[in-house]
């Protein structure tokens, strides 16, 4: 069974880039959010197993979403996919509960590899 997936990024291209990197059988159960606030609403009202999250977004950013997930005590596997690759940011998101930090632009083999490492595939 494919897990419920949410992709959150303010860029349409970046969302598509993640979508096309996903395993075929996952692609039918994907929801999209274009900012942090939208993502939090979807996360609260649905049981999302895997979240692919951008950091630099207007309004509630990726850090805000991670904090929201902690506050709501949601059980969700978060993979941060960001252009902000500073080491301090990478460790910050892990402290806030993200499984992995992946650099933009995302590549399908890298993404699949990480999903496997975390037993999601």
């Amino acid at each position: 069974m494919s897990p419920s997936v949410l992709i959150c990024d303010d860029s349409n291209m970046a969302r598509k880039q993640v979508l096309r990197s996903l395993p075929e059988e996952w692609k039918n159960t994907v929801q999209m959010a274009t900012n942090g606030a939208e993502a939090l609403t979807i996360l609260r009202d649905n049981s999302i197993a895997v979240l692919f999250l951008d950091l630099t977004m207007p309004g509630i950013d990726g850090i805000g979403v991670l904090q929201g997930i902690q506050k709501l005590k949601l059980d969700c596997n978060v993979f941060v996919i960001s252009a902000d690759i500073q080491p301090e940011m990478q460790s910050k998101v892990k402290v806030l509960g993200a499984k992995e930090f992946l650099r933009k632009p995302i590549k399908a083999d890298v993404l699949i590899n990480h999903l496997q490492q975390h037993g999601l595939l």
Partner: peptide, 20 residues
């Protein structure tokens, strides 16, 4: 709109590495 979005994302990635 698509070209603009694409360009912004390319710039976003370039900016991220420049900041790093």
């Amino acid at each position: 709109e698509d070209q603009q979005d694409c360009l912004e994302e390319l710039i976003n990635i370039a900016m991220g590495q420049a900041s790093d």
